[in-house]
Structure formats: C-alpha cells, structure tokens
C-alpha cells in the first residue's frame, strides 16, 4: 500500500493506493498519516480511495477510527471515489451514512466550505 498527500486550499487530500488490510499494515499507515495531519493543524481531510482495491475489516475499522478522531477534534474527514466493493461493505456494516462521500474532487473540496 502506498500513501501520498497534497493540499488543495486548506483541504488535505490523502491518496491511498493498494489494499487497506491488517496483513499489509495499511490500517496503521492510514492512522499514522491522519494523526500527523491533525497534529499539523489540518482539520479538513479528504481520503481518496479510488485506487484502493480491497479493504478488510481491520482497514474498515481504521477508516471509522480516523473519522471519529478527526470529528472529535472538531474537524471533518470525507471520502472520495469510494469503490463499489467498499461501498457494499459500508452498506452492510451500516457505516455509509456515517461518511460523507463524493465521486468528484472539486465537489468534495467545495463541500468543506459549507
């Protein structure tokens, strides 16, 4: 799994490529990334999951965890380009309603301004 980051205005976009699974340590990488962004004062986080092929239960747990951590600090964490497979998982676990998710980056970035 690879993780990258870029800023669009004051929105930090975290780009994830590969599987988010316990066995590949993806869950911990995401946690560390989000925590460091929060420590740097970022409060608007957008996770781009367009290149994520598979998320296991540990990965899913971590996505919710970083969402909760961000909310707790008064920030917001949203999802961009959720794949069909992850969406099914979010529906099954009834977590889809928890996240704001977008297919279009510009629209997602704009949503933070509301």
């Amino acid at each position: 799994m690879q993780i990258g980051q870029r800023m669009v205005g004051d929105v930090a976009i975290v780009e994830i490529t590969g599987d988010i699974t316990l066995s590949k340590g993806g869950d911990v990488i995401i946690k560390d990334k989000v925590q460091s962004l929060l420590q740097q004062g970022n409060r608007k986080l957008l996770l781009d999951l367009g290149n994520v092929s598979y998320v296991d239960s540990a990965g899913l747990g971590q996505l919710v965890q970083v969402y909760a951590t961000t909310s707790h600090l008064g920030g917001s964490l949203k999802l961009l380009r959720v794949t069909k497979r992850l969406k099914d998982l979010l529906v099954l676990t009834k977590l889809l309603t928890v996240f704001d998710s977008y297919d279009d980056e510009a629209e997602a970035v704009a949503s933070f301004k509301k």
């Binding site: 747990g61 919710v64 965890q65 909760a68 676990t93 009834k94 977590l95 928890v98």
Partner: peptide, 28 residues
C-alpha cells in the same frame, strides 16, 4: 442488526432479510 450479515426469515411467506439496526459496534 448492528452491521451483521443480514439474517433471513424463510417460511410460507417467502424470504425476508433482517436489516434494520445500526452501524457496527465499538467504533462510533
């Protein structure tokens, strides 16, 4: 149902999936 694979009720009236509930436990 807290995020569990939906159970089914099967009988004379056919099949029904039990989906009402909320998100998985222990995260939110």
């Amino acid at each position: 149902n807290a995020g569990q694979e939906p159970p089914l009720v099967i009988g004379r009236n056919g099949v029904a999936w039990l989906e009402t509930g909320g998100p998985v436990l222990g995260l939110l």
